[in-house]
């Protein structure tokens, strides 16, 4: 009984470690391809252009509306709370830290995950089940260069650019709230933000967005690749991929908070 339990625990642990190693290996190979100039052939560049359009451009109207709605409400709540607790003198750094370091990259990553990561996971899984990936392999077309890399790069570009757009919209909304709650004119608000912003904030925004972009494309691709040869395996693959993706997003968020607090 005890031996069987230990055997099960050991088996499960080895299984988890093995899949973790496989995922790390895949990440490493994708990163190597990312840095290799040879990967950027005309076909790959064409797919990359299309992916940037699908991931970053098509979403702009919806994204802007979401940013105005959610961004305004949240920045409003932060400003109201700050003024209630008498933190008016620190409002600049509160807004900058909250908007640039935390909320913009996180919210953008969540939105892109819901829209594009699910689509990519399904796409790769369907291609896998339909043997399209094998056909590409038979024509000696590198799957990483042609299929995965454009999606990963487009994810990184999209999250960075949309995070900046989100931050901009939130900062504009912040002005409206500071005007009403603190009677602050635009010049003072602008000066407050400029004096509060540090290189560290911009670096955090950039690094976090790039990491989110990389992860929200890599995990669905990997999950799609691991789909077994049956149509019924596609929803399971998407489900598993999305769960792993959200765990990874929260892990990155917590890790960044830990690193910043050091």
């Amino acid at each position: 009984m005890v031996l069987k339990f230990i055997d099960n625990v050991g088996g499960k642990t080895l299984e988890i470690l093995d899949s973790f190693y496989e995922a790390l290996k895949f990440t490493f190979i994708c990163t190597l391809h990312l840095l290799r100039p040879k990967s950027y052939n005309p076909a790959m560049r064409m797919v990359l252009t299309k992916q940037i359009y699908f991931t970053a451009v098509e979403i702009i109207p919806l994204f802007t509306i979401m940013a105005v709605l959610f961004g305004s409400v949240i920045i409003g709540a932060v400003i109201v709370l700050a003024s209630e607790y008498g933190l008016q003198d620190k409002i600049g750094s509160i807004i900058i830290t909250f908007v640039l370091d935390e909320f913009s990259p996180f919210f953008t990553a969540l939105l892109i995950s819901l829209r594009s990561s699910t689509a990519i996971n399904t796409e790769i899984a369907v291609m896998n089940v339909n043997n399209e990936l094998n056909t590409l392999r038979r024509y000696r077309i590198d799957l990483i260069d042609y299929l995965f890399l454009p999606r990963i790069i487009s994810g990184m570009i999209s999250v960075v650019s949309l995070s900046i757009l989100f931050a901009f919209i939130m900062l504009c909304s912040g002005y409206i709230f500071t005007l009403f709650y603190m009677n602050m004119d635009f010049h003072t608000y602008k000066h407050l933000l400029i004096s509060a912003i540090e290189l560290k904030d911009l670096l955090v925004l950039l690094i976090k967005s790039i990491t989110f972009g990389f992860v929200i494309m890599l995990i669905p691709i990997y999950s799609g690749l691991k789909t077994t040869n049956a149509y019924t395996a596609i929803p399971i693959s998407v489900l598993n991929g999305m769960v792993k993706l959200f765990v990874a997003i929260f892990f990155i968020e917590v890790l960044s908070l830990l690193i910043q607090s050091l």
């Binding site: 052939n41 005309p42 076909a43 560049r45 064409m46 024509y139 000696r140 077309i141 590198d142 260069d145 042609y146």
Partner: peptide
Amino acid sequence: LENIALIKEVHEHLATKDAQ
């Protein structure tokens, strides 16, 4: 067209327009 052109684009690094 894209499907056919892909082979030349990848193996011969031919520009998309020329491959098409």
